[in-house]
Amino acid sequence: MLRFLGQRLLLMIPTVVVPLVLVFLLLRLAPGDPAAQILGDQASPSEIAALRSEMGLDLPLPVQFVLWAKNIVTLKLGTSFFFKQPVIDLLPQYALVTLQIALAALFLAVALGSILGVVAAINKDGVLDRGLVGVAVLGISLPEFWLALLLIFLFAVTLRWFPVSGYVPPADGLLASAATIALPALALGIRQSALITRMMRSSMLDVLGEPYIVTARAQGLPEAMVIGRYAVRTAAIPVVTVAGLSASYLLSGAVSIELIFSLPGLGKLLIDAVARRDYPVVEGAVLLIALMLAALNLIIDVVYALLDPRVRMG
C-alpha cells in the first residue's frame, strides 16, 4: 500500500505544476498592466514605472519565472495588490465557502444518485426505471444557473424558506449558515446526482449479469443481501470515478452559482482577481485549487484500492 501511495504522489506533481506554470504565463502574457490598473487613470507614467519595478514586473520573463517559482515552493504567496493583505490569510475564508457548498452538493449527489441508480437497475425496464432514466437525462441537461433561478423563485421568493442570497459563516450560527448554502448546494447537486444515477444504473446492470450474482441467487441468498452486499459494492467502483469528477468540478468554484447567490467563494475570488490583474491572488487560488484536486485524486485512488484489491497489485 505504501509503494502504491508513493507512486500516486509522484503522478500528482504534474497536476499541480502544469496549472501553475500555465497561470503564470497566461497572466504575464495577457494585455493589461497591473501597475496601471492599481494606480488608476490619474497616475503619471513615472509613477507606474516605479510601481512596476517595485512589483518586479520590469524584470525579464525568465528571471520573473525563477523568482516566482522560488516563492511558490517556499509558499511565499505574496500580498494581494487589491486587498493589501497577505494571500495566505485571504484564501482560507473563500475556500471555506466553496468547500462547504461542494461538500453539501457532493453528499446530496452521491446519496441521491446511488439510491436512484440502484432502484432503477433493479426495476430494469419497469415504469420506475423508465421514469428515473427520463428524470436523470433531464437532470444532466439543466444548466445550474437556470436551475438556481427557478429554485430562488420557488423556495426563496414564493415560499420564503431560504434567503434569496448572501452568506453566513458557520461561526455565526450553524443553522443560519446551512440555510444560506442550501439552495446553492441543491442547484449544484441535482445535476451531479443525475450523472451519478446514470452511472450507478448502468454499472449495476453490468454487475447483475455477472456469474457470481447468478451463483449467489442460485444458492438461495435473500435478494436484499445479493444486492446490498455483493452487487452494490462492485458496482460502486466506476461510480467513484464519476463522483470524483463531480467533486473536482465543485471544488474549482462554481462561478455562476456564487454570483447568483452572492457567495464569497473561490470562483468569485478568481474571476474578480483575474479582472483586477491581482496576480498573487490568482496564483494563490490556482495553487490551492490544484492542491485540493491532487488531494482529491489521492483519496479516490485509495477508495479504489479499498474497493478493488486488484488495483493495489497492478
Partner: peptide, 9 residues
C-alpha cells in the same frame, strides 16, 4: 494538469 486548471481562469 490541464484538467486541474480552473477553466474560468
Amino acid at each position: 494538469g490541464l484538467m486541474a486548471f480552473p477553466s474560468i481562469v
